[in-house]
C-alpha cells in the first residue's frame, strides 16, 4: 500500500496534476473543490495514512491550534474520526455535542458561533441538522469551518474518504462505473459523492425507489434508474446509502422487508457487477435492509477500510486548511 508516490505520476488517462494548495479556507461543499484540489487532498491523505501506521501515531503539525467539534446532531463515527485526526496532528480539541449545548436553551447558531469566536478557535468542525448551517457559520466567524454533514445537503469529507478508498483499489476514476444505491432523497453523502466523483470523471449511476429519487439529478451529470440490476450491471464500485428512517416523515416504501427484496444488495445480485467490484457503505449499516450481512462481511466489502481511511483524509483536510494563507490563496 505504501507505494512511492513521490514522482507524482499523473493519474492514468489524464494529465491532471494535484493543486499546490486549496483556494478556500473552509471546506463547505465537495462542489467547491476542483479536480486538482481533490487530488491534492487525496495525495496528502496518503502521507497521513503512513502516520497512522507508525508506533507513535502523532505528529506536531497543529500544535497550539484549537479545533472545536460542534456536533449538533448525533454522530459517532464522524465525530470520533475527526477527533482522532485532530489528536494525531497534536491540535487541542473541544467537543460540543447537541445535548449539552445552549442551542437547547434557545440560542441561535449564529449566537453560538459568536460565543465560540470569543474563545478564538482556529477551526470549527460542524455537524448540523439544517442544510446550509456550515455556510452560515463560515460567514459569521473567523475560524476555518469544515462541514461534517449539514442536514440533507452535504458531507464532503465522507465523499473524500470514499474517493480515497476507491483510488486505493482502482487507481483511476475515469470511466469507472460507480453505482450508488439506496435512500437518495435524504442523503448528504450522495450529494457530496456525486459532485466529487463526477469531477473526477467517474460514470456515476444512482438507484433507489421512485419515492426516494432525487429531483433534478441530471445537473450532476449522473444517470438515474429504479432498476437495481441495471445499476449493478458491470459496476466497478457499489456504494450503498443508509435508509434514513429518522428523516422520513411519511411512508416512502411499504416495509423494510419489501425494500430489501427490491433494493437490498445480496451476493446473488452482485454477480451482475464486475468480478473485482468493491462494496462500500458510509455507515451505520442497516443489515437486512440495504445490504445482506454476508455481503457486508464478505471479501468484496471495503466498509472497514473506509472508516480507517476517514482519519487519514480528515488529517489531510485539517492540515491543508491550517496552512491556508489568506493573502496567498486570494486569486
Amino acid at each position: 500500500m505504501n507505494v512511492a508516490r513521490d514522482a507524482r505520476q499523473p493519474a492514468a488517462g489524464g494529465q491532471v496534476q494535484p493543486a499546490a494548495r486549496l483556494r478556500s479556507k473552509h471546506l463547505l461543499s465537495a462542489g467547491d473543490l476542483s479536480r486538482e484540489e481533490i487530488l491534492l487532498i487525496l495525495d496528502s491523505a496518503e502521507a497521513m495514512k503512513e502516520v497512522g501506521a507508525r508506533r507513535i501515531k502523532k505528529v506536531p503539525t497543529l500544535r497550539g491550534a484549537t479545533v472545536v467539534n460542534l456536533f449538533l446532531e448525533p454522530s459517532t463515527r464522524t465525530r470520533t474520526s475527526f477527533e482522532i485526526a485532530e489528536k494525531r496532528l497534536s491540535a487541542d480539541t473541544l467537543n460540543i455535542a447537541g445535548g449539552t449545548s445552549s442551542l437547547l436553551k434557545g440560542e441561535t447558531l449564529v449566537d453560538t458561533a459568536r460565543t465560540l469566536e470569543a474563545m478564538a478557535p482556529d477551526m470549527v468542525v460542524l455537524r448540523h441538522a439544517a442544510s446550509g448551517a456550515c455556510h452560515l457559520l463560515a460567514g459569521a466567524c473567523d475560524a476555518r469551518v469544515i462541514n461534517a454533514g449539514d442536514g440533507m445537503h452535504e458531507h464532503p469529507t465522507q465523499a473524500l474518504l470514499d474517493a480515497f478508498t476507491i483510488r486505493e483499489h482502482k487507481t483511476r476514476f475515469e470511466g469507472l462505473k460507480v453505482a450508488i444505491v439506496g435512500d437518495l432523497l435524504h442523503s448528504r453523502v450522495l450529494r457530496s459523492n456525486m459532485l466529487l466523483l463526477s469531477a473526477l470523471g467517474a460514470d456515476v449511476w444512482i438507484c433507489g425507489p421512485r419515492t426516494l429519487m432525487l429531483p433534478g439529478v441530471e445537473r450532476f451529470g449522473v444517470r438515474a434508474t429504479t432498476s437495481l440490476d441495471r445499476a449493478l450491471e458491470d459496476a466497478d464500485v457499489v456504494m450503498l446509502l443508509r435508509v434514513q428512517a429518522e428523516r422520513m416523515q411519511g411512508h416512502f416504501f411499504p416495509s423494510r422487508r419489501e425494500y430489501f427484496a427490491t433494493f437490498g444488495l445480496t451476493a446473488e445480485r452482485l454477480r451482475r457487477a464486475r468480478p473485482d467490484v468493491i462494496v462500500m457503505h458510509p455507515g451505520p449499516m442497516n443489515r437486512g435492509v440495504e445490504i445482506a450481512s454476508d455481503v457486508a462481511d464478505g471479501p468484496v466489502s471495503v466498509i472497514l477500510e473506509q472508516v480507517a481511511n476517514g482519519v487519514a483524509v480528515r488529517m489531510a483536510v485539517l492540515y491543508l486548511l491550517a496552512g491556508f494563507d489568506a493573502n496567498e490563496g486570494a486569486e
Binding site: 496528502s44 491550534a65 491556508f324 494563507d325
Partner: peptide
C-alpha cells in the same frame, strides 16, 4: 528510507515563509 519532514516544520500556521509545502509519504521500512 525516505523521510518527509513537512509535518514537523515550525512554519506551518504561524510563521509561514512561503507556500504551503506539499506533503509526501515517509517510508522507513
Amino acid at each position: 528510507g525516505a523521510l518527509d519532514i513537512t509535518l514537523y516544520r515550525d512554519d506551518l500556521m504561524w510563521h509561514a515563509v512561503g507556500p504551503q509545502p506539499v506533503l509526501r509519504s515517509t517510508e522507513i521500512p
